[in-house]
Write a protein that binds this DNA or RNA. Structure first.
Length: 648
DNA sequence: ACGATCACG
DNA sequence: ACGTACGTGATCGTG
């Protein structure tokens, strides 16, 4: 047996690396010691659990003083036995990853192990949800260990980096160009990291030491954060978040079926489109449509003048600038107010085709498993507001104005994609939390909120005299202003964002505050509370949301966005209670994308929609169920498109 | 590593 | 006193 020593917070810890069956006696003694929560971690060949060739190399167990680093292949039976002991509880940092690894390679099932694993990430997020970039301590193991365990905690990933780089360089000298290219193709992001984690000697002292340290840090973190959670009265919320996370981890394992033939054709078509417009742009001297410098230069050369700036003060050449130059509106339709600039037109089209291909179509194909399913990573507790995030691929961000990308995602055979979304959930939550009298009355009456607001703002007389087109415009403005209120914005930003005249927006915003005076009052209340509660606001479930000093006006948005997220998270639990969790594919902020057997799709989504519905402080949060079709895209097609697809 | 851009709710 | 648009993830170019 190899052993390694390391100091953590001035105490010596021992890392054991068994090499023979006899070496496992100490490991068994370790497990049999006084009942406590045991740190758990895995080292794998990469982060893509469902890709070909993925392997789990090490499984680590540990407490505050010692770690046991077990080779996954050599001691497979021992690991399975340890993880299956029902009296043992474990703690991991970012538990979904390790749970899915162990599940994937057959060392423990998600069903058995999942309910017995704590996650220090969850506890840390409840204490302070900010990443380092966001002005907080951060939520990575190393960052948390430095704050709560040991100032000098090792960055175990970073520490291996130089070794991995060296290994990778050496390897590259021994193999052909083709082999290197093939490796870079499959590991485009960080080829040397991927190479290192796959090939480093399994008994490499630093690899083993760092593998062991991670569980020691995690075990110590649990002790520290556990006390903080208990002291803050957040035990119930922590339990809730663990349950929500386990539900989304099941969704991640289930994944979504990809229509491979369709997606290949789509990727090809997008590439052709991109190439066509890149070619046009080249004719105007833009070799690279993604180079802002080239684009600015070429457009100026054509005599275009614009004043839009980026946050850093540079000239902006996003689609807000380019579409008007191409005489196109937000829906990409000709406006007819100027001669379209052919370069601006080519750039927006080339960039959109590239974006759709590289961010969506290609990842659908490369990330899929042997059953053509993608398994996006779902972080159930991600944003500062606790909103969920989905990555790899980013399924919460697929284009919604066009069905072609979503068409690539299919329901399982014999099933249909169904979905239910909340109607204006953030407005309803705001009405409830700020106790907005008139808004609550309108919701209770079942009125269309934005229409009713327009009537209140403009007056019944004006509304009655208005043409349908004018009414539509007034309703749309109220919707925009409503969002602006939820986001804490003012007339300037709203006018810019919506493209509507400043005077109209300013007038609407002022009237909005008169009609719903509780909203600005609530914002002031939250900011007062934050001032004497350490610069943070608290949601009704007791979640702490730190504010940025210079952006205290965001308080309302934080509380509303966070509470709306909790509405959806609670719905996931009710659906789970009802035994319908296996039908939920993906949460998307205010909707659940599901699948249901084709014969009962209508009833199933109606029931899921019913389970989603709830009340927040006696304000009804309504949902709308819908049957899409064989693909996710079916829900985004015009009736004509859908009909012609059904015919085919 | 960071800014710019673009995709979503 | 005034006014502030909120939260994400992925890709590409640039230094």
């Amino acid at each position: 047996m190899k052993t390694f020593k390391y100091r953590v917070d001035r105490e010596e810890v021992t890392i054991y690396f068994p090499e023979t069956e006899d070496d496992l006696a100490g490991f068994r003694r370790f497990l049999n010691a006084a009942p406590r929560v045991i740190g758990l971690d895995t080292e794998t060949t990469g982060l893509r659990i469902y890709s070909r060739g993925f392997r789990c190399r090490l499984v680590q167990f540990g407490d505050a003083r010692e770690a046991w680093v077990l080779q996954a292949d050599r001691f497979r039976a021992e690991i399975i036995r340890a993880l299956a002991r029902p009296e043992l509880r474990f703690v991991a940092h970012n538990a979904p990853f390790d749970l899915l690894v162990l599940d994937r390679v057959g060392l423990a099932s998600l069903e058995d192990l999942g309910p017995r694993v704590f996650d220090t990430y969850i506890l840390a997020h409840l204490c302070d949800p900010r990443t380092d970039r966001d002005g907080g301590a951060g939520l990575k193991l190393k960052q948390l260990a430095a704050v709560y365990v040991d100032n000098d905690a090792a960055d175990t990933q970073d520490g291996l980096n130089s070794i991995f780089l060296e290994m990778y360089r050496a390897w590259k000298k021994t193999v052909s160009r083709d082999e290197i290219q093939a490796w870079q193709q499959t590991h485009a992001k960080k080829p040397h990291t991927a190479y290192g984690f796959t090939h480093i000697a399994i008994d490499h002292p630093l690899y083993v030491t760092y593998a062991g340290l991670d569980v020691v840090y995690t075990a110590r973190l649990l002790a520290e954060l556990g006390l903080l959670i208990k002291g803050a009265g957040l035990t119930k919320l922590a339990q809730f978040e663990h349950r929500v996370q386990l539900i989304t981890t099941h969704q991640q394992r289930r994944g979504l079926l990809i229509d491979v033939e369709y997606t290949k054709t789509l990727a090809g078509r997008l590439e052709e489109e991109a190439e066509t417009y890149r070619h046009v742009a080249k004719g105007y001297g833009v070799d690279n449509v993604n180079s802002t410098r080239q684009v600015i230069e070429a457009l100026r050369g054509m005599g275009e003048v614009w004043s839009d700036k980026t946050d850093t003060g540079n000239p902006a050449v996003g689609k807000e600038v380019l579409l008007p130059m191409a005489d196109l509106n937000k829906d990409w339709q000709r406006v007819g107010v100027r001669d379209p600039n052919p370069l601006a037109d080519a750039i927006v089209r080339a960039k959109r085709a590239e974006k759709w291909k590289e961010s969506y179509a290609v990842p659908f194909l490369t990330d899929r498993d042997e059953n053509d399913r993608i398994h996006p990573s779902i972080k159930s507790l991600a944003a500062r507001t606790a909103r969920m995030s989905v990555s790899g691929p980013p399924l919460q961000q697929l284009p919604s104005g066009d069905w072609t990308i979503r068409r690539a995602v299919l329901a399982d055979p014999g099933h249909l994609i169904v979905a239910a979304d909340y109607s204006a959930v953030e407005m309803r939550v705001l009405a409830a939390l700020a106790d907005v009298r008139e808004m609550k009355r309108l919701i209770a009456e079942g009125a269309d909120l934005h229409t009713a607001t327009a009537i209140m703002v403009y007056g019944q007389d004006v509304w009655d005299a208005a043409t349908p087109k004018q009414r539509k415009r007034m309703r749309s403005l109220m919707k925009t202003v409503g969002f602006g209120k939820v986001y804490g914005g003012g007339a300037t930003g709203l006018s810019k964002q919506s493209g509507l005249p400043y005077a109209d927006v300013k007038n609407a915003v002022d009237r909005y505050d008169v009609v719903y005076p509780e909203i600005p009052a609530y914002g002031r209340l939250l900011q007062r509370q934050a001032a004497y509660k350490g610069g943070a606001v608290y949601t009704p479930v007791g979640r702490r949301l730190p504010l940025d000093r210079d952006r205290a006006y965001a308080a309302t948005n934080y509380v509303v966005q966070s509470s709306a997220r909790d509405v959806l998270a609670q719905a996931l639990c009710r659906i789970d209670d009802a035994g319908m969790s296996h039908l939920v594919l993906l949460p998307v902020h205010d909707e659940l994308v599901c699948q249901a057997p084709a014969g009962e799709a209508e009833e199933v989504i109606r029931e899921i929609g019913r389970l989603m519905e709830t009340t927040v402080r006696d304000v009804f949060i309504q949902s709308e169920p819908e049957v899409y079709g064989r693909s996710w895209g079916a829900g985004y097609m015009s009736p004509d498109d859908r009909a012609s697809l059904d015919a085919a």
